[in-house]
Amino acid sequence: MIRPILHRVAQAVLVALMVGVLTFALMRSLPGDMAWRVAAGRYGYDITDAAVMEQVRHSLALDQPAALALLSWFGDLLRLDLGVSLISELPVVDEIAHQLGASVTLALTALLLSVLIGPPLGVLAGLRPGGGLDRALFALSITLRALPQFVIGLLLIYGLAIVFGLLPASGHGEAGHVVLPALTLAIGLAAVSSRVARDATVAVTSSGYYRFGETKGLRPLENFLRHGLRNIAVPIVTYLGVQLVYLIEGVVVVETLFAWPGIGHALVHAILARDVPMIQGTALVMGLMFVLLNAGVDVVCGGLDPRRRAS
């Protein structure tokens, strides 16, 4: 149990390092006098004069060689000093604190919806491989997997919000607003997890131990509950870890599409505006969210699969 935790901690550190290095490179590549930009960001455009600028240059180690500057950059990161947004002039930490809730709500709702849609359908299909449901689900899955998330979103908007007027297309604040963006992400996730569930079901029901359960005299339902369910669930949950990449990437795109005020939306805006402190902050938090969700998957896997606890 210690090793996976250490692994995730190391991963979090790597995320911080990568984001740090890349945003540092980004800052260095900015045109114009960096110090002025950052100083203006920190202290406001009106009070920035030459003296303040010099002071900031010094404090940001911009007058130092790159290596030292990078060290100082990481020093700030280590103290969780993410700086001030160049656009809103608010501390990055405060901005992100607002957006994090929205993104987490979206991500978790999407994850929950996908788990409710994908695996149950997949298991049903896998119980009768080659049957009608199996073939229909396969066709649907390969179609959905060929659609980028924003296209699924567009189709949902078009179908549910515009044609039928059932749900609000964008906005934030009411419970109904989360449905479309979360459903967009969930459908993409379920298209894959249903196939994983289907394959796992086929593998388990044709396994030696499942057969043995039958010949021991267990009734089909008893056998499925005692020897099928857990063994099918293990690969599905393990695969959730792989799908988290898709979820985090989807958050960026879907938030932009639905104008959902989350971190992904903020990241895209920050990139367009080249707001370095915000880019660093949002990328860092999204990366850490990825690591944290992965750790959650580890915990669920450990709970489901006694082999993990035993080893």
């Binding site: 991963q11 790597l14 995320v15 990568m18 984001v19 890349l22 945003t23 980004l26 988290l244 990449v245 985090i248 990437e249 960026v252 795109v253 990241l267 895209v268 990139i271 880019i279 990328a283 999204m286 990366g287 990825f290 690591v291």
Partner: peptide
């Protein structure tokens, strides 16, 4: 450690 699209976005 970093989701792919984040890496591409940063670059």
């Amino acid at each position: 450690a970093l989701p792919g699209l984040l890496l591409v976005l940063l670059l």
